[in-house]
Amino acid sequence: MPVGYSIYVERPSLIHQRIDPRTKLAALGAVFVLALAFNHPAVLGGILVLVLLAAQLAQLSWRSLLPAMVGSLWFLVLSLLIWPFYVKGGPSLFILFGSTISVNGVLFGLAMGLRVALMVLAAGVWMMTTSPQKLTVGLLRLGLPYKAGVAMTAAIRFVPLLNAERITITEAQQARALDLKRENPFNRAVKSIAIIGPLFVRSIDVAQSLALALEARGFAARDGRTSIVQIGMTTTDRIILIALAAACLLAIGLRILGIGLITRAYL
């Protein structure tokens, strides 16, 4: 059996089980605000450590965080290569291609890399700790139209399903002597049709049967419906929400005062 693929990781942690999906969504938003409010690598690094602590509290393994971290590393390298040519100030380090590279430039490059890492990691931790069903219920309570909610859950549900289909199709075509690795890029693109074609047909098939199955079970017979997943705000949620709001206000205040910044010239 081909193994499916799902981002959400079930864990018996406080963050997984006790905290309302709406709170977690707010926390993700707050991390984004904080990441954009500061551009000093020390501050952003500090927030990154907080996100990693949250991941530990959620009992996520380091290994599961690795893809997000490796992905952000590229941005870190790229930003360290580009920003020093634009941001000046502070003691000069050396001259490269006729441009003076200064401490501030390097620090800002580091900060921008950390900012991307922070956002990617926070989004990753959020997806790994929030089950799609609970998230949908949360969004419905926030006023998302019901059908849109189902469409969203179905879309998330489709990812592992279609991945399994892709694996099967690839195997079936390999058994017909399709060897993409040995082809030049042009032929590889042309021959990929042997995998993309059946994948499209299968996804349309699956979507159609899902639509029929939903209708057969009374989908949209009435507006709104009950849900087997129950969510609710607790005191913990309220405390977290107040803390998040305070942190965001503080960050915006500090930004206006110019604290925690390398330069005011860039976001």
Partner: peptide, 20 residues
């Protein structure tokens, strides 16, 4: 697998997994 396909043919259960 592609090299072995010369010796062993494998027909999958669902034809829709291979028709393109």
């Amino acid at each position: 697998v592609a090299e072995l396909a010369r010796t062993v043919g494998y027909v999958y259960q669902n034809p829709d997994h291979q028709i393109f």
